[in-house]
Design a protein around this nucleic acid. Structure first.
Length: 259
DNA sequence: ATGTCGCGACTATCGCGA
């Protein structure tokens, strides 16, 4: 099973980029973030025409996540537990069935800037709720993947210029510690299980010619339960997408699990 | 110091979020 995560930065602006990508690459599962549209307005047909089942958790203008799957999706749930007042659409979960099922958790973690401040507090609180959900996922003892835009730079080697990020919510010690607390519950960072060292990025800002200068960061991650990690074949970043037509500021992150 | 996008709003520039 090939699973791809892609922060598309708006489905309206990215529809052709995304459908063209799906036609070329044909992932079994595509997990999308920042769709920036309501469930009702999401253009389901172009994806259904490509053979995908579509599950959306959207909202107007901002955030929004979706799961596309060639196989039927079961047990779909929307929203991250732990705060009934939270109206931001950042979490969707579904089971991809079959002989060896995989639970897919698609997430768009809050950016948290400016830090300190209420947005940073929301980020850290959201990560506490995520940790609680992660603990439950481990108890299920299933193959499960928490994949998406984590908005966390885990280590200095995950930025071309880490010194430029020290005050940023994506790199502050509190964010990195919260990420580690989740990872160290017993998850595997799929990319780091297969690749070492500096120079592997999933995001380049539109501003300041960041891509031309390769001023990137690695903030899109796939965390695997032990049952999923046992099936990990490969994990890679499709960096070429950033130089293609009408790019998102993120590129796809791929995980291949043994069927 | 600034540089870019996407979206939505008192439709055409601006505020917000990233």
């Amino acid at each position: 099973m090939r699973i791809a995560s892609f922060n598309i930065n708006g489905i309206r602006a990215r529809l052709e980029t995304v459908t063209g990508w799906l036609e070329r690459q044909a992932p079994d599962v595509a997990v999308l973030q920042e769709i920036k549209i309501t469930d009702e307005a999401f253009p389901r047909e172009p994806f259904e025409d490509l053979g995908y089942n579509v599950e959306v958790h959207g909202q107007k203008s901002f955030n929004g996540v979706a799961i596309l799957s060639k196989s039927p999706l079961e047990d779909v749930s929307r929203g991250l537990a732990g705060d009934e007042t939270d109206e931001q659409a950042r979490w969707i979960e579904a089971l991809v069935g079959g002989a060896r099922p995989v639970r897919i958790c698609g997430l768009y973690l809050p950016n948290g800037n400016p830090a300190p401040g209420p947005k940073f507090d929301y980020k850290l609180a959201w990560m506490e709720r995520l940790k609680a959900r992660a603990e439950r996922l481990l108890e299920l003892e299933e193959a499960a993947v928490m994949i998406g835009d984590w908005n966390v730079i885990p280590q200095p080697e995950d930025a071309e210029h880490p010194e430029n990020w020290v005050e940023d919510a994506l790199y502050r010690p509190e964010s990195r510690a919260a990420f580690r607390r989740i990872l160290h519950l017993g998850f595997t960072d799929a990319f780091r299980a297969r690749h070492r060292g500096k120079g592997h990025y999933t995001f380049w800002d539109y501003q300041r010619a960041a891509h031309e200068r390769n001023d990137g960061i690695r903030i899109d991650h796939a965390l695997l339960t032990p049952q999923a990690a046992d099936r990990l074949n490969e994990c890679w970043i499709e960096a070429e997408m950033r130089a293609g037509p009408k790019p998102s500021d993120h590129v796809p992150l791929w995980v291949e699990l043994e069927d």
